[in-house]
Design a protein around this nucleic acid. Structure first.
Lengths: 343, 343
DNA sequence: CTGTTAGCGCGTTCAG
DNA sequence: CTGAACGCGCTAACAG
């Protein structure tokens, strides 16, 4: 039923090899016959069969994207950017959603599933086990990590330690000394550096300011709105509650702000809150946050993979670090009784 | 390099046909040889080549998902549910993002691209031109529309007229009589019924209450946060501004609430706001909204397609209408000077 | 219950 | 610059 390359060849009066070459823009084809082939292909409504060409060439023109979520802010935006960039050059995206959570509670991901199905893979911030990572490496395909970096593969991410430091220093500058931290799931897999790094940034900023981080001020928020609510509740219930909080994501920060207000705590007067992401709704919440360029990360990853696929890649070892920037809004203010530095 | 079906056949001492049958769970295979084949396949790490089996069988085990966005709330959640349901039974999802906006401003979508690449297609609420729709039909593939319904294909959606009516009646019950509407893009394509229907619901509720809709109270919000802000600004600038607003999406409602507050208008005392969706952040905003089950829509669409693919479908003409429900929160209140009905 | 044999539609040598 | 021919890895009859 569908139009095949033979149909085109026959009606154009050339061989299938010529049609193939002409349509794919390969050299060694007379421009006139190329034009003719193009015309008849168009007339006939010819669409090459992807499976046939994959089978024959070994190339799939598909990039696998391994992600723990589709609908969450970071992932949705990263995927959108990846998809756009890849489709622009004719690549399909094959989504592989790995249920999140401690790797022990989800079915193991078998990278072999990807063999013969993709030419390259992008791995979005996802907690992988060592053997999953090894399996991925064994595929010997171009790989790009987004939001994390792993030895032996290119990556594009932000400096998460700097993120934590930037947020915390902002709070310190405002005179806060009891600064809480709302982070990820402490039971999370080992390879999930993001929350760990942001927490490290928080601690190092405190230490640099001569403060010793109080363990009770460090609470998990699971990177969800609800986790943020619960976290701030725990923080406010402390004997000596914090006057400021650094939440490792905007969504947790939203939950924290909302719950704090519901508890009668005014923001920023009684509690300053800083998030991470610069989520599209951060402005509405008046949330001060450390913004990160998600789309840029997705696009950059796509380009790194495409470069590797083109073979035009010199060193397959790039680790792009994209800039982050504090976006000051109204959720942070000087600590009421603090002596402010002169800026 | 990769392990082929021949390798498995050879080392298991059977023919490729038997391997194929055994691995795919087809009948007419001795359970002992089936077990043996499974074992050696596992030992060898055999993964069937998807393109080869597609080429040979004509089935791709992939369903195309046509969507205008990936990252927006409705689409992200619908896609996530579709993906999960489909992957659970071994189907891949091929994303096709059609740039939104008036169909005149985007490159035409050629459904022929899908030929030979998918076994079925799900179309998420997207403004398609008539010829795009025809092209899709010409594929003669099972099709399911999500969030809209089209003759000749199954669909799963909500009753958008009822959505508009529900929201508006809630406001009317609270005694409001000047009720604004923040809708979609008036230049949107013809086939995009969602905003039209919600608006119709708004108008019909007003009419049923004996009110005649004021054209100046009907403003576009483009289904974006920013559109919602602009819309409410226009509404508040009116000589006789509304005391309540029905926004056709939560994101527009968020923008509207935020902008109204920034303009010194208290919510709900001076302005009641109702949205649509029950977005995960609606609770934080205290937004009263007409909730819709997005994931259920995605899952249902997946199941309808799978049923059609199984051939176990009786009538390919189902139009599922999923229920919506008003979620009352704190963004709506009785109109200050109104006489309330006794409920 | 199992094996044999054709293709599926294309890319890719290798000749010419 | 172009064509002939093979084979990618698998499924689907058809035999047996």
């Amino acid at each position: 039923m569908p139009v095949t390359i033979d149909d085109v060849a026959r009606t154009a009066g050339v061989s299938t090899a010529t049609v193939s070459r002409a349509l794919r823009g390969l050299p060694h084809v007379n421009e006139l016959t190329r034009a003719a082939v193009h015309r008849t292909a168009l007339d006939l409504g010819y669409v090459p069969s992807k499976s046939a060409s994959t089978l024959a060439s070994g190339r799939t023109r598909t990039v696998g994207v391994v992600t723990p979520h589709i609908a969450k802010w970071y992932f949705a935006h990263a995927i959108e950017a990846l998809e756009e960039e890849l489709r622009a050059v004719g690549y399909d995206v094959l989504l592989l959603v790995l249920p999140p959570g401690p790797t022990s509670t989800r079915p193991a991901f078998d990278p072999e599933e990807l063999r013969q199905r993709v030419d390259a893979v992008a791995v979005l911030t996802v907690p992988l086990t060592g053997s999953e990572l090894d399996g991925l490496r064994r595929l010997r395909l171009p790989m790009a990590f987004v939001g994390a970096s792993v030895a032996g593969a290119v990556s594009v991410r932000i400096d998460d330690v700097a993120v934590g430091r930037t947020a915390t220093e902002h709070l310190l500058r405002l005179g806060h000394t009891r600064i809480g931290h709302i982070g990820g799931d402490p039971d999370e897999a080992v390879n999930f550096h993001t929350p760990v790094d942001r927490r490290t940034g928080w601690m190092s900023a405190l230490r640099a300011a001569g403060l010793s981080p109080d363990r009770s001020l460090d609470v998990p928020g699971m990177f969800t709105v609800d986790g943020g609510r619960r976290a701030v509740r725990a923080l406010l219930a402390l004997r000596d509650p914090p006057t400021a909080v650094f939440a490792a994501s905007d969504e947790m920060a939203f939950g924290a702000m909302s719950e704090a207000r519901a508890a009668g705590v005014r923001i920023p007067e009684q509690l300053s809150v800083v998030g991470v992401d610069d989520h599209e709704l951060a402005g509405l919440f008046g949330l001060t946050t450390v913004g990160q360029p998600v789309e840029d990360q997705g696009r950059a990853a796509a380009r790194l993979l495409l470069a590797a696929l083109d073979g035009s890649t010199t060193h397959s070892n790039e680790h792009l670090l994209l800039p982050v920037a504090l976006v000051e809004r109204s959720s942070t203010a000087a600590h009421a009784t603090a002596v402010l530095p002169d800026r």
